[in-house]
Design a protein around this nucleic acid. Sequence first.
DNA 1: AAATTATGTCAATGTTGTTGACATATTTCA
DNA 2: TGAAATATGTCAACAACATTGACATAATTT
Lengths: 169, 169
Amino acid sequence: MDIMAQSFPRKLALAEPLATIEEPDFELIELLFFAYRDFVGEPDRLLEKHGFGRAHHRVLHFVNRHEGLTVAELLEILEITKQSLARVLKDLVSGEFIEQRAGTEDRRQRRLHLTPRGKALAEALLGMQGRRIARAIEKADPASRAVIARFLSELIDPERPKPAVSETP
Amino acid sequence: MDIMAQSFPRKLALAEPLATIEEPDFELIELLFFAYRDFVGEPDRLLEKHGFGRAHHRVLHFVNRHEGLTVAELLEILEITKQSLARVLKDLVSGEFIEQRAGTEDRRQRRLHLTPRGKALAEALLGMQGRRIARAIEKADPASRAVIARFLSELIDPERPKPAVSETP
DNA sequence: AAATTATGTCAATGTTGTTGACATATTTCA
DNA sequence: TGAAATATGTCAACAACATTGACATAATTT
């Protein structure tokens, strides 16, 4: 029996004609699990060569995407505690992947920037995930991307405010 | 600046007309991250009440889906080590969520079954994820589901053989 | 001057993963 | 039948990544 090759009825008609109970979509639930695992698995193997883990990846990614963001902003995005970030950030700073510069307006802030080394690693990781996505999407028609993006957006808790990220001053 | 509300050029034309470099699809990459986090976050909060974590969830899920599967099969699906599973399985067995029955053909095997308690928890977790998926998909047209399933399937490493799961004898 | 804010750091703890070694029961094979 | 292979369990040690709570420092705001 092939674990993935099953199809399931997703609606179950009941005695009460008004109620329609949705049967959980096992296939999509499991696909999300397996897809996400492989999606992060490939980067994991590159990170390992630097002695880094997934937490380092996330920091590199969001510093790359939002150069100069503050520590507080990064904590908000990642939804982790200061201490969890501290360990990872220390590795990245001491390994010269990230540098901290005091904010110009508010000098208490430590704004985070990638060094060339950090940029290179961040881009390598990004490339892996980007190529995987591109491969997965290129066979489908162009409208698919919007459908997928919409679906993934809807999976996100609506009450979760999208964290604001400051402009680099 | 809203972290999610950006759009990116996903193709970058180069000087060489033959080469088209795909710019990584930042938006989908980040959507996968945030979507997966919330997708597992809601179950996490229920599991916490039992003192369980995500590892317990995965075991409950796959035992629910494949009643009577063996320990070896579960290890293959989860791609974790025996010891990682052992701790989690011990919690679930001692808490009477899962019971182990010696295989009828091969009595070395410990085939895993949910107790009523285990079934109830597994179904509760499944319901959460099922409803989240249903909510995310119901606004889109029916063809979307196939597009999404296809996309997620393509994200999975092709060389990964789908683990075979034995029939309950 | 006092309160608040941004960040850093310390200590303790928990969950989930790893490896390697070894034990036991059972089945299969020569 | 006896040896080898298999399925599982268990032990010890370790690592990554998360948590909480408390406290320290520097800078900004009130």
